[in-house]
Simulated assay, not measured.
Amino acid sequence: MDLEGRCQPKLTGLRLIETAQDNGLRMTARLRELEVKDLLYLCRFFGFSSETFSLAVSLLDRFLSIMKIQPKHLSCVGLCCIYIAVKSSEDEKSVPLASDLIRISQNRFTVSDMMRMEKIIMEKLYWKVKAPTALHFLRLCHSHIQEQLAAER
């Protein structure tokens, strides 16, 4: 519970994304949704866990809520978020090469671009990767309901 308050995306930043007009120059909720779908595709392709996907989305939202990025940089940001999530929640042997992630996602940036963006994301998030996610919340609710049902029996 203590971590949750410190690791939530900034609401003011998310509201800016929600209200932005889709003119190709600003981040919008639709662009964010498309990027989340790309993250899901990559997680499924590589067989990453639900925790990894949830953490990647959390990192993406936290970063987007504090930084104004241009839509052309979103794919690099998203790929870095999944790369950070994979490195922090998957087995070391499951971590793909950055070049493989770039190739499979058909993006047009280099490993160097990705490493630079990863550093920016980590700095802006104060190197705090592990954070409560929506999946953590759902699992807590599920266990609470299970406990209630067990107590009623």
Rank of each mutant, 00 (worst) to 15 (best):
F48K: 08
E118Y: 02
S112R: 15
M67R: 15
I121Y: 06
I84W: 00
Q106H: 04
N107L: 01
F48N: 09
E33P: 02
L34E: 08
M117E: 05
E90A: 06
C76Y: 00
E123S: 10
L59Q: 05
E51G: 10
R116V: 07
A134W: 13
L55A: 11
L31C: 04
K37L: 07
Y126P: 04
S94R: 14
K130D: 14
L59D: 08
V129L: 08
C43A: 15
K119G: 03
R32M: 06
E35S: 14
V129N: 07
L64H: 05
M117T: 04
A98G: 00
E92N: 09
R116I: 07
K37T: 04
D100N: 07
Y83K: 02
R103Q: 10
C80A: 14
W127V: 02
Y83F: 09
S88H: 15
F46A: 03
L125E: 10
P132E: 08
K68I: 11
E123K: 12
S89D: 13
K130Y: 11
L34M: 13
T52A: 13
R108Y: 07
H73Y: 12
V36C: 10
L64T: 03
M115W: 02
V57I: 15
V86R: 11
L97G: 01
L59P: 09
E92H: 09
E33C: 12
T110L: 00
K124E: 14
D61K: 06
V36S: 05
T52M: 08
C80P: 11
I82F: 05
L79P: 02
M117I: 04
L42M: 15
K130E: 11
L125V: 14
P132L: 06
E92D: 11
L79R: 00
S112N: 10
C81E: 06
V86Q: 14
R108M: 07
K87C: 06
Y126G: 06
Y83C: 03
R103K: 14
M117D: 03
V77W: 07
F109D: 03
R32Q: 09
C43H: 05
L79I: 04
F63L: 07
E35C: 15
C43S: 13
A98V: 03
R62H: 10
I121P: 10
F109I: 00
F63P: 09
D91P: 01
L74D: 02
I104A: 01
S65R: 08
E118F: 00
D38R: 14
V129R: 03
N107Q: 13
M114R: 00
S49Q: 11
R32P: 01
K37V: 05
I121H: 05
F109K: 02
G78P: 06
L97K: 12
I104P: 00
I121C: 05
E33G: 09
S54L: 09
V111G: 02
I102R: 07
W127D: 06
K124N: 14
K128W: 07
L31F: 03
C80H: 10
T110W: 00
Q106D: 03
E92S: 11
M115E: 12
E33D: 14
M114E: 01
C81S: 12
M67T: 12
I82D: 04
I69C: 13
D91Y: 04
K93C: 03
L101R: 01
A85W: 06
L34N: 10
I102S: 05
Q106M: 02
D61R: 06
